[in-house]
Write a protein that binds this DNA or RNA. Structure first.
Length: 524
DNA sequence: CTAGGGTTAG
């Protein structure tokens, strides 16, 4: 229509341009958008507020952030209102250009441009959605000291950041804010709280928040179910699933992801099959990729590797990497070379640059002392310039989140940390504990292995926590990789010996250590 | 007129 209008010689005005840009954004056809941009420049409409906002919006939706910045640079900043500035910030961080968004945001601040609660909230959302959780918390603090009051949208943007890094103190502060201001009544806020408490290891607080939501929607039910799954409480998750049905809420495909994940954490193979089958039979929901991942994970981890492989072969669509990844990690758990090789071959095609897959395969070989094969895998990694993701842990001590990297000695208290771990290891040996060096699957001698284990970031974080918190207080640690068997055994010991409750969240679940035992019952 | 909550794997 726009092209026809042009060919007939009609001049588009700013309203026409805005409408066209909005349409272009919705269908994500940025090449058309560029043509329209040329028009805008030719017609001298670049100074018009409507057109500027519409342009920003369009480029943001078309995932074309480079052109967006170009448009911004060509725009007279004076002509942008708060709305346009906010649209720009959102568009940048949505397109993976969070750093640029931060710079632009800073520029606006320095130049004294008006920024409102939406501006701050978009930046907080941008950070928490791009893995910059500490930065999100920092922005929230700056926002308040700048005198901008958070609202009912700010809190659900902030809470995922608290959950991601288990910043419980910050999460509780946000909860307090929600109670004081009454925004707790907003179901977005309360469901975000349910999720935050679960991710911070406080599943009972999560449940408390959940029970107090008067108008629960499916997001709330799914959040608590996912929380129980993450804590390995399969039966509680299943109870919630049934309760949800009793209360007349229909489970959706995410509810099934949660309950299947719960079954898989708890090793409930038969229950899992029943849910998987009833999904289509009783609810008409077609199984998606994530449901197949869960099932492969469920079967594989319980040792039914052939059954898991059969399931993959019978899937009605091409399996994604997550499905093969579930099989490969199960093969690592049960050290199955034949299926491990098949899974790895598929993964190398789908994700040629993911170091995790190579590490898993190499570890399967190492478990059988097949060092030549281990070397071959490591050579491929080296030749492609891949490095193992370094292990990393976070711990919150007195409102501050500390990050510890495996083998990184930069923490100012490193000497004390090493000393503490050394003392503990002597105590453990006295108690008859032997370091489980099998789990360091590299061809190194025993003493080196012991040193490598001491460097694991979760142990460093536990030691840092022991040193800096009062005796008897709980510790909370988040890890970016899965916890290894040795760290698991060591932390169990520490929880008993030091009389501490220790919460450790690894990539996919919680371990709650208390009195020398772990809530996972050593199945994970 | 721009900002928001729940899911799978490693």
């Amino acid at each position: 229509m726009f092209q026809e209008m042009h060919s007939k010689g009609f001049q588009p005005d700013h309203i026409t341009i805005s409408s066209v840009l909005s349409a272009v954004g919705d269908i994500e056809r940025f090449n058309i958008g560029i043509q329209v941009l040329c028009y805008v420049i030719k017609l001298g409409l670049l100074h018009c507020k409507f057109v500027i906002s519409a342009l920003i919006d369009m480029f943001g939706k078309c995932a074309c952030a480079g052109d967006l910045m170009k448009a911004f640079e060509e725009t007279n900043e004076e002509l942008m209102d708060v709305g346009a500035r906010n649209a720009l910030l959102t568009a940048l961080s949505r397109n993976g250009l969070l750093d640029v968004a931060m710079e632009v945001f800073e520029r606006f601040r320095v130049r004294g441009r008006e920024l409102n609660v939406v501006s701050w909230t978009s930046m907080i959302a941008g950070c928490s959605q791009n893995g910059k959780d500490i930065e999100a918390l920092e922005l929230f603090r700056e926002m308040q000291s700048a005198g901008v009051k958070p609202n009912s949208v700010t809190i659900p943007c902030l809470l995922p950041a608290c959950g991601n890094i288990a910043a419980l103190v910050h999460g509780k502060a946000a909860h307090g804010f929600a109670l004081r201001t009454g925004i707790i009544a907003d179901v977005h806020v309360s469901s975000a709280l349910v999720d935050m408490y679960a991710k911070c290891g406080r599943i009972h607080l999560s449940r408390l928040c959940f029970d107090r939501i008067p108008n629960k929607n499916s997001v709330c039910w799914n959040a608590i179910m996912g929380g129980y799954a993450m804590h390995g409480k399969a039966n509680e998750a299943i109870d919630i699933f049934h309760l949800m049905q009793q209360k007349g809420h229909k489970p959706d495909f995410i509810s099934f992801s949660c309950v299947l994940s719960a079954c898989s954490q708890g090793g409930l193979t038969e229950q899992g099959w029943r849910f998987f089958n009833s999904m289509y039979e009783d609810y008409g929901i077609e199984a998606k990729m994530e449901h197949y991942s869960c099932m492969v994970n469920l079967l594989g981890r319980s040792g039914k590797l052939e059954e898991a492989y059969t399931m993959i072969k019978q899937m009605p669509f091409e399996p994604h990497a997550c499905v093969w990844g579930a099989l490969l990690s199960s093969c690592r758990l049960h050290n199955n070379i034949r299926l491990g090789k098949i899974a790895a071959r598929n993964l190398f095609e789908l994700e040629p640059n993911n170091p995790g897959n190579y590490i898993l395969l190499s570890n399967i070989y190492a478990s059988k002392a097949m060092w030549d094969e281990v070397d071959a895998v490591r050579d491929v990694m080296r030749s492609r310039g891949m490095k193992k993701n370094p292990g990393c842990s976070w711990i919150e001590i007195k409102n501050q989140v500390h990050m510890l990297l495996a083998g990184d000695k930069s923490n100012p208290q490193m000497t004390e940390i090493i000393e503490k771990l050394h003392k503990l290891s002597l105590e453990m040996k006295k108690a008859g504990y032997l370091p489980n060096t099998n789990l360091v699957l590299q061809d190194v001698d025993e003493q080196d292995k012991e040193q490598i284990l001491c460097g694991h970031s979760e142990k460093l974080a536990v030691a840092l926590g022991l040193l800096n918190t009062p005796p008897g207080s709980p510790l909370q640690i988040i890890k970016n990789l899965r916890i290894c068997g040795d760290c698991h055994a060591v932390i169990k010991f520490i929880s008993g010996f030091e009389g501490r409750e220790i919460y450790v969240r690894d990539t996919n679940r919680f371990h709650h250590f208390k009195d020398g035992v772990c809530s996972c019952g050593d199945f994970w």
